[in-house]
């Protein structure tokens, strides 16, 4: 039986690295298209990544912690980005 705590930390680290790479892509998309959705997604992914880092640094296995609020914050940012996208306003597309 492998050491499960190490396994979970390993997976969490890989996930955090993945989030960071995706966040960088979204940041680049934001500079390319000036679309607010991308910078909000970038922020949400970075926050999710930070929760993974926090889970390693804080040895408590319970979720009644600020980690849990950070996760909720990230998802609320995603929801906010979707709502913001659907607000009635003239959308700006990047014109070549």
């Amino acid at each position: 039986m492998p050491d499960l705590s190490n396994l979970n930390h390993f997976l969490g680290g890989a996930i955090a690295a993945g989030y960071s790479v995706a966040a960088l892509f979204f940041l680049k998309f934001y500079f390319r298209t000036k679309d607010r959705l991308f910078v909000l997604f970038c922020a949400a992914l970075l926050i999710l990544g930070s929760t993974r880092v926090a889970m390693v640094l804080v040895n408590e296995p319970t979720e009644n912690h600020f980690i849990y609020w950070l996760r909720l914050l990230a998802y609320l940012i995603i929801l906010g980005a979707i709502i913001d996208k659907n607000r009635p306003q003239s959308t700006v597309h990047a014109v070549e």
Partner: peptide, 21 residues
């Protein structure tokens, strides 16, 4: 309080973010 039950969600998330990348 089961350590093993955290493994499936982590694996799923790793696969998802890898697909995205």
């Amino acid at each position: 309080n089961q350590a093993w039950s955290s493994v499936p969600p982590n694996i799923v998330m790793l696969a998802s973010v890898s697909a995205l990348i």
